[in-house]
Design a binder for these strands. Structure first.
Length: 346
DNA sequence: TCTGGGGTCCTAGGACCC
DNA sequence: TCTGGGGTCCTAGGACCC
């Protein structure tokens, strides 16, 4: 009778590229870059992903397609196709749900699993085999005592491997690594930590929580030390996530300077966002307008609505009023609308 | 490398009220 | 008349993640 609980993190390897290669098997082994409409000459479009063959030429996700084309002229460029990824993701998640585990989905290509077993490695191998057989997709699986450990373990397990990272081997695995190896500490915080003398996970784990709180706030500061100690959330939540809000934004191929043009785009975005809310059965409580000007300066302005609404005219009017509170004296490269939803009680 | 789109959570300052 | 302290709401921005 198994009594030990584990958190597993399943991460599909090169998910978007893998789905595209299933549809285009003739491209296997070639450098492939996915992003935008698939036109690498389009400015202000970035790669969603790049295959290993493209990465060998220095191409990576987030890189402008035009740069990718320069670095790898032989690459095949494919358009991004979110509905196809959504469908592939659902097939994978359906396989996971057939196992005696709790499943918490985290986006298209990730899931946390809660399992009770004495042999998590065998469970992980069985999961990989089932996903591979049923969807022809590879995944890596991390095994941990909590989500943080499992998440880092799955990254260490790539490609297509299984890795265990628990409290028992946390220190030997993580202590020497830089602080941004932790899930939740990025480049900015890592740099600020380094300025305080905390370069490694071990150093951060030994830090004074009060000092961290002074520099990073009462919640974040002590939390960074917790991460360094290998702690983290250990509850797998199977109930569907309820979105806090929703947004749509557009980056223009060329800057816009005419307010009427901006108002037209903003009106369309506000209409979309409101329709999305209606489709999701949600009400809007707050409207926010984002404007990004050259040189890449991003500002947001927001208003709380007097009452929750699903009226596109009201949301649009509010967005246009907010637009007038923005400084529009510089050319605009992006405009966006974000809304917050009322949260259901309980 | 001239830098997407869609999310979540936290912080800090000011307004306002008691 | 001046000032205190605390609580809550609103807004703008920052950081992180996929």
């Amino acid at each position: 009778m198994a009594t030990r609980n584990w958190i597993l993190h399943l991460d599909l390897d090169q998910f978007i590229a893998a789905v595209e290669l299933l549809r285009h098997p003739e491209l296997r082994g070639r450098p492939v870059v996915v992003g935008g409409t698939g036109d690498p000459t389009q400015p202000r479009t970035v790669a969603a992903t790049a295959t290993y063959e493209a990465r060998e030429h220095g191409v990576h996700s987030g890189m402008p397609l035009r740069t990718a084309l320069r670095r790898c002229p032989d690459a095949v460029f494919l358009p991004s196709d979110p509905p196809a990824y959504e469908a592939a993701s659902e097939r994978v998640m359906a396989v996971l749900r057939e196992f005696p585990v709790l499943v918490e989905i985290w986006g298209w290509d990730e899931a946390f699993l809660g399992a009770t077993t004495d042999d998590p490695e065998t469970l992980a191998a069985d999961l990989q085999h089932a996903v591979r057989t049923r969807t022809r997709l590879d995944c890596s699986i991390g095994i941990g005592d909590n989500k943080h450990q499992a998440k880092l373990a799955s990254a260490l397990a790539k490609p297509a491997g299984v890795r265990r990272l628990t409290t028992a081997n946390w220190a030997e695995t993580m202590n020497h690594r830089p602080t941004d190896a932790l899930w939740g500490i990025g480049a900015r915080i890592s740099k600020r930590l380094a300025a305080l003398g905390y370069h490694t996970v071990a150093q951060l784990a030994a830090a004074d929580p009060a000092e961290l709180a002074r520099h990073f706030g009462p919640t974040n500061g002590p939390w960074y030390r917790y991460l360094a100690l290998g702690k983290g959330e250990a509850e797998v939540v199977t109930t569907p996530w309820i979105a806090r809000g929703h947004s749509r934004e557009t980056t223009f191929p060329q800057d816009l300077t005419d307010r009427a043009d901006l108002a037209r785009h903003l009106t369309a975005l506000a209409g979309h966002v409101t329709q999305d809310a209606v489709d999701a059965g949600r009400e809007i409580t707050r409207v926010s307008v984002k404007v990004r000007t050259t040189p890449f300066l991003t500002r947001t302005r927001q208003s709380k609505l007097p009452a929750p609404t699903t009226d596109p005219a009201l949301v649009t009017r509010t967005a246009l009023d907010i637009l007038d509170r923005h400084d529009l004296t510089h050319p605009v490269r992006l405009i966006g609308v974000a809304v917050e939803y009322t949260m259901p009680k309980e």
